[in-house]
Design a protein around this nucleic acid. Structure first.
Length: 784
DNA sequence: GAGTTTGAAACT
DNA sequence: CAGTTTCAAACTC
């Protein structure tokens, strides 16, 4: 498999490549928002494109961050919709609490103010710094001395409270500029029936770290258990933004913040939790101790759009940097977009000092959720310290992005459980600011298998481990000319970076080559650095497929193609157009396989050059007020009246729209021809179903009849009696009968007597045959 | 199953 | 962008 040139890295779509901007905007087809959950396995998924109103924005800064009463402030807020703004700064004085729920106020006894405007924005101001509380230095805020330090209750859109519980370590002063150990946990609890979100953040300051180890790991692990309530689909929109600020950049003893988030629901523990693990290594940025780091995420009312605004300034009035990015989820092909704002850019973070290093982060996102049929995976094979992994079971895409590592090695290990979170070596103080937006359509599932990229020397190897392990040999040939728009890559594409220090490349793998294993209910991506060296990168991906058994998930029916001239590398080929490798097809001279990945890559690029959205589904969401589904381009039928499968609209069982350029179209709502056709089609379908049922019933009856009539014989695997009447037996019998006839003739007996003799002989023959048959069965009960 | 029709994709 | 060609699926016989 060829590898896309490192330049491709810079061409990755903003949705996943922009590590600074934390704004995302997406439109999601309605059909992907709320598919009903049917099975328990589905319930265990992590639905990420959700309508659940709780949009949680968490903003923390490590070490001497906002929890200290010095001068650092932190604000996390969302702009609209359900918002949670947590301001741990004593400087904040927003006190106009409008709709604070009782639970909120009870839990915020030491919070100076809680503001919950009508838009569900919850503003929590840490209590003014109280000198010497619990022996902590002045300025250390102790929101709640025992156990969980802070309980913040907000109101969701549905009016249900959102609780935040901070562990004791949250309030650690961390005023020692990089010394000490700061662990933070945020637990968010919602009311019954709503997801409970618990986010724990641990920031460890390692005195042994060096500036070269300035990589920071942020691991965000989210476990979500949808409620067992059958009250509609459980879709959760989770946005977690974490800003970590290690002021200890000047202090080598700065730590590596580890943030682990866990999202759980109050559902019954019947369904295993789904884990979302996000591991990232961010660059070390010296944070202005007095600076404000404000991250605002705006999950707009419209679930399809998300705007993340990162604000870093010393004052709330500081200019904000807001970036809105489309998530390319239109056309019914939502993707997971995980963005991280490393806050390495002073222009965006506003708090970075001149010593800030422009080290791109390593980010890994593992999401187990509603699986889809296909994925796009970018698997890091090089420079793993800077890895961004996004695996979306619910999406047709997987993204694992590599960014150039400028510092020492790091390891991102994202596991299915919180215990699997591993820290990257890290060390420099950082300010991490990540926005994660996960969109997972609840659609057909497809398992993603473990993909273990191997260390490369001259070639890239991807080991897929499963019950039937596959080994993919991917030539490391650089294809600098290939710069595909990754957002439009064929669904199910796996991008694998090329080896080489500092160079980034991607190889494209279709989803079918991601090992699919029936390990359900979680997704795990593991990445290990120094891939270009002898140290192998281990990228593992495991995820469930909507709880579907692997066999079921992988047995997705697809019509085999019959391409003969296109080599299955053009959109004529349905397999290629769907981003799949040909399998069990009838094609001739097929290049749509791993053996011709180079050609395939070129073909993909060519297609994308011609049409950037070539691999996007043609049937997408229509405009406002129109049908939910419509052809993105419209058909151009001329003769079929759009009532045959030649017409893509008709084939998709949708009506033609205004963008169609068809002639003589009869595929509209009121078309009598269409109605008739649909009626006939329905009738035919019913007929087929009936016939199928009848056949099934008949077959069952026949089988039952045979079982009952010949139980003794058939049950033992023996032959039926008539099977003993072989040709030889028949001939011998006939000889016996003829002998009787001859004897009768020799004796001058009458014909009647001869006939009687023949019949008697025939009876004896039959008895002997039966006798031998029974004896043979007894002697050889297995199979004679 | 072979041949025809059709419209999207590809090409010019 | 329009016209033409190529292609594979849909359809017919």
């Amino acid at each position: 498999m060829d590898v896309v040139s490192p330049e491709l890295n810079s061409l990755l779509p903003d949705e996943i490549m922009d590590t600074e901007a934390i704004a995302m905007e997406e439109e999601l087809p309605a059909e992907h928002l709320a598919p009903p959950l049917q099975s328990e396995s589905e319930l265990t998924q992590v639905p990420m494109e959700t309508e659940v109103p709780e949009i949680v924005t968490l903003c923390t800064t490590t070490t001497a961050m906002q929890m200290t009463a010095t001068s650092s402030d932190a604000q996390c807020s969302t702009i609209s919709g359900t918002q949670l703004l947590l301001a741990s700064s004593g400087l904040m004085t927003g006190a106009s609490s409008k709709t604070t729920s009782p639970g909120v106020t009870q839990s915020l006894s030491k919070i100076s103010s809680v503001t919950i405007p009508a838009n569900h924005q919850l503003i929590i101001n840490r209590v003014a710094t109280s000198p010497g509380v619990d022996g902590k230095p002045p300025g250390t805020a102790v929101l709640k001395p025992e156990g969980q330090k802070l309980l913040v209750a907000g109101l969701s859109k549905t009016g249900q409270p959102i609780m935040l519980a901070l562990p004791q370590t949250w309030n650690k002063p961390a005023t020692t500029q990089g010394t000490g150990d700061a662990k933070t946990q945020i637990k968010m609890l919602t009311a019954v029936g709503k997801p409970v979100i618990a986010v724990s953040s641990a920031s460890q300051l390692l005195s042994t770290s060096t500036p070269l180890q300035a990589q920071q790991l942020k691991t965000l692990q989210i476990t979500k258990k949808p409620p067992v309530s059958s009250a509609g689909p459980m879709i959760t929109k989770l946005i977690i933004t974490k800003a970590l600020n290690n002021k200890g950049l000047t202090n080598p003893a700065s730590g590596a913040p580890v943030v682990t988030g866990r999202v759980v629901t109050q559902s019954t523990p019947v369904t295993p939790p789904r884990n979302i693990t996000i591991g990232e290594t961010t660059s070390t940025v010296q944070q202005n101790p007095s600076g404000n780091t404000k991250v605002a995420i705006s999950p707009l009312k419209s679930p399809g759009k998300l705007t993340v605004v990162s604000v870093a300034s010393g004052s709330p009035n500081s200019p904000q940097k807001s970036v809105t990015l489309p998530l390319n989820v239109a056309l019914g092909q939502p993707i997971l977009a995980v963005q991280q704002s490393a806050a390495t850019s002073p222009a965006k973070a506003g708090t970075s000092l001149s010593t800030a290093q422009a080290v791109k982060p390593v980010q890994g996102v593992t999401v187990a959720g509603m699986g889809t049929s296909q994925f796009k995976t970018i698997i890091p094979l090089t420079t793993p310290p800077n890895v961004q992994q996004i695996q979306v079971p619910g999406s047709r895409f997987h993204y694992v992005r590599l960014v150039t590592a400028t510092t020492g090695s790091g390891t991102v290990h994202t596991g299915a459980s919180t215990n699997t979170n591993s820290s990257i070596q890290p060390a420099k103080p950082v300010m991490m600011n990540a926005a994660v937006r996960m969109s997972v359509p609840i659609v057909q599932a497809q398992t993603v298998k473990q993909v273990v990229p191997k260390p490369l020397t001259s070639a890239t190897q991807v080991m897929t481990t499963s019950q039937t392990p596959q080994r993919l040999i991917m030539p490391a040939t650089h294809l600098p000319q290939i710069q595909p728009n990754l957002t439009n890559l064929p669904p199910g594409t796996v991008l694998t970076p090329a080896h080489g220090s500092g160079n980034m490349g991607y190889a494209v793998l279709p989803a079918p080559y991601v090992t699919q294993i029936p390990q359900p209910t979680f997704v795990t991506l593991t990445s290990r650095s120094t891939f270009s060296t002898n140290t192998p990168i281990q990228t593992q991906a495991r995820l469930s497929l909507n709880g579907l058994p692997t066999s079921e998930a992988t047995s997705r029916q697809r019509k085999p193609c019959n391409c003969t001239r296109s080599q299955c590398l053009k959109l004529y080929c349905d397999c290629f157009a769907n981003g799949e490798f040909c399998s069990n097809c009838n094609c001739v001279n097929c290049f749509n396989n791993l053996g011709h990945e180079s050609e395939r890559l070129k073909a993909i690029k060519a297609c994308l050059d011609r049409n950037p959205v070539a691999f996007k589904p043609k049937i997408g969401k229509g405009k406002e007020g129109e049908s939910d589904r419509r052809h993105s381009k419209g058909c151009n039928c001329k003769k079929s009246g759009c009532l045959k499968n030649y017409c893509e609209c008709y084939e998709a069982k949708i009506m033609c729209s205004s963008i169609c350029k068809c002639m003589g179209c009869k595929n509209f709502e009121e078309s009598p021809e269409r109605k008739t056709l649909m009626h006939l089609a329905d009738a035919a379908e019913v007929r087929v179903q009936q016939q199928t049922a009848a056949k099934t019933k008949l077959s069952s009856q026949i089988s039952d009849l045979l079982t009952r009539t010949t139980p003794a014989i058939t049950s033992g695997g023996g032959k039926l009696p008539y099977t003993f009447v072989t040709k030889e037996v028949a001939e011998a019998t006939c000889d016996c009968l003829l002998e009787q006839v001859e004897q009768a003739e020799l004796n001058n007996q009458t014909a009647a007597t001869a006939e009687r003799l023949v019949l008697e002989e025939f009876g004896r023959c039959l008895r002997r045959i039966i006798s031998f048959a029974g004896k043979a069965k007894t002697d050889c009960p297995i199979n004679c």
